[in-house]
Write a protein that binds this DNA or RNA. Sequence first.
RNA 1: GCCGAAGUGGCGGAACUGGCAGACGCGCGCGACUCAAACUCGCGUUCUCGAGAGGGAUUGUGGGUUCGAUUCCCACCUUCGGCACCA
Length: 816
Amino acid sequence: MSEYNHNTIEKKWQTKWEETGLYHADIDKSKPKFYALTMLPYPSGNLHIGHWYAMTPSDARARFKTMQGYNVMFPMGFDAFGLPAENAAIKHNIHPNKWTYSNIDYMRDQFKTMGAMFDWRREAISADEKYYKWTQWFFIQLFKHNLAYRKFSQVDWCPSCNTTLAREQVWGDDRVCERCGTPVIKKELNQWFFKTTDYAEELLNFDGIDWPERVKTLQTNWIGKSEGANVVFKTESGDDIEVFTTRPDTLWGATFMVIAPEHPLVEKLITEKSRTAVEEYKEAAARQSDIERESTSKEKTGVFSGGYAINPVNGEQIPIWIADYVLMSYGTGAIMAVPAHDQRDFEFAKKFGIEIRPVIVENVEEIPNPDEMEEATIAKGFMINSGELTGTPGDKSIKTVINYIEEKGIGKGSVNYRLRDWGISRQRYWGAPIPMIHCPKCGVVPVPDEQLPVVLPEDIEWKPTGESPLKFHPTWKKTTCPTCGGPAERDTDTMDTFMCSSWYPLRYLSPDYEKGPFDPEEYNYWYPVDCYTGGIEHATMHLIYVRFFHKALRDMGIVKGDEPMMQLRNQGMVLGEDHEKMSKSRGNVVAPDVLVDKYGADVVRAYLIFFSRWEMGGPWDSQGIEGTARWLRRTWTLFTDDPQENAGTASAEILKDLRRKIHQTLESVTRDFETFEFNTIVSSFMELVNFMYKARVEGAEKTPEWDEALKLYLLMLAPVCPHITEELWQQIGHDYSIHKHSWPIFDAQAAKEDEVTLVIQINGKLKERIQVPAGLNDQEAEKIAMASETIQSNLEGKTIRKVIVIKGKLVNIVAN
RNA sequence: GCCGAAGUGGCGGAACUGGCAGACGCGCGCGACUCAAACUCGCGUUCUCGAGAGGGAUUGUGGGUUCGAUUCCCACCUUCGGCACCA
């Protein structure tokens, strides 16, 4: 017998795997391919337990797929551009390049202690010139296909990170920066945008992909589709004011209009009389923070513009108000206000004494008195006060009105999305430079392909100025225009790092390829991603961007298929032992390195798989891991202890039971791997080991059944604990490597029970359990149940009404 | 307010298709080994009444469907996540 020394064993096999290239994934057309992908980390400098939690079950499943006969690619890389590197530069005067790459080196070594089947030859690092050359190339492709444009606009700005943020990167009620938690402010800047909105409708369609409902719902809400109509009102001076409404059927109830303070028509509507009040209101609105302005609890404010509009359906003249509850950024920045049927309009009308006119009622006999209304009604009955459409029933009203306004040429059915175009300009250094040139003569011109990549300069001064450090470099931005040859300037902004991560699965295909972003041969074999795993927090960021990106590339003819990732699964979060989110300030952080040192990677992997349902996550338990460690030591003992004295003396029944147990385990473990129910995989193994311990006492060792059990157990365990299984595989006399072995074949006959527990209930209450031979017919089962003494005595004085028999399981006697 | 997920022992969690609730692990208790401790091994462990045999209750709450509900339906409560003056 030998001690289980995880340190020696794990090191030894990791070295051997690397030397023999065990996990190299190469094209092999004789096998079905499987592209398993897990979200790549940011090189923060340390692998935390969350990385292990996300990646080790993903690795176990990739290994399982390999054993099932798939040619599996499971790559890893680093999302290496981003702010922390630059912040480190400012704080510690270390170059972001150096900081990032030394972090990567350190983390790569940490990764290797995990024993995962990553093929490091495929590693991709987004900050490599050979990588971001193609990020820039993709930017230019998007530009050439009218999917990238530049716009002077109001953007969210983080005053701490000194850069703009995409809408997705602004979080919560307090509208804080996703990265540092600082409240964001608004800034007017010239920015690059990608037209994600062009794909809004298609992004709502998840047909053909197996993604969690949770993510689909989050994305659907984020895209926020509303159907309704656009209607054109005219001002007195003849200008058009277009509004979007989801309730065109209430058009006759519009008693005023509201436009956003930033609406371009405000200037034209102002009269001598209203000028002072309007200007004061506009200024007040501009001074307000977004939080104040967008708070739903706030009392409505507004001011009369001085102008009027004509309601195109009934020719009525209605006042145009200016109020900050209408946002310039959604719809047309103007609304028709129907106080009787919209709560916001109702509150506004009440406050400013504007007419409230119901136009939809449940019952034509009971038209509510507007003065007595306490809130807007969302009635669905009939249209009233609506000219020739009066009487239209609610279920047809919207359609009818849309037809009506389209015929009259005053509006049309339309759809609005909450999704905005993706702003990707960042005023920072450590990112892929936007490959565009500003020429005073030719305008904005892309950098020619042969000049890519536009390389970041090394010598940069670190000043948190709020503008891109590239702007202050003495020479970098100076260039010549590729069109006219005259002096021109480079764009000094860099791209949002989500741009880099939107295409990284393609770069893994061929990270050194020079003729394009990826090698078409590799692409044709491996794409699309078969299974993608990672955190739910990316639902409305990365996971939307990556789909948008793929669809845009598809339309450019660069990739095929409608979706990049066929299957997605999200893991939950590992919480601290105090059930709180892990954080340095709370002091509840669990460091994987320490655990690996103490227990070994196999135990850490198995515990992470065991301790909670994967998609739920849960609190860490430092006592709990001891149980997993104990089980793996028991596994070791099972293989390495000298046989018991009674070895080989087990009865045929014991040996049959052993075979049954091992094949039942195989069945459930196979199913659980398929369905991502990882925690029960490890519990099945624990049960199996407990069972084998008992069989061993009964003399089951040194039998073919015992040897089969050992072999099958190791094979099943190999994806979860790759090191110990490799070691024991060798010790019991098999060839290197267990990880090249195929998944065992399930013997259904062996797994079958020949005795079952017959449950006997009276009125649905459990009264007795009897062991009976399997395959008993219903009559026999009933007879056995009735013959039981317990049942007999329980039935005394009762009349049997009905007997229900569930084959091989249960007899329920209904009696009273 | 809207959308979504989840509520099961002291704790993490299990229960495949409506059929033995609590697998597996932690913790706890008892015992073996040991000079002793650790390791290891064995047994027990939902609550409650009972000395015991045995009885009763129990999957957030209340109702319903069913011979039978953790599982299906309705209403509600709590927690977590997302969105939110989105017209």
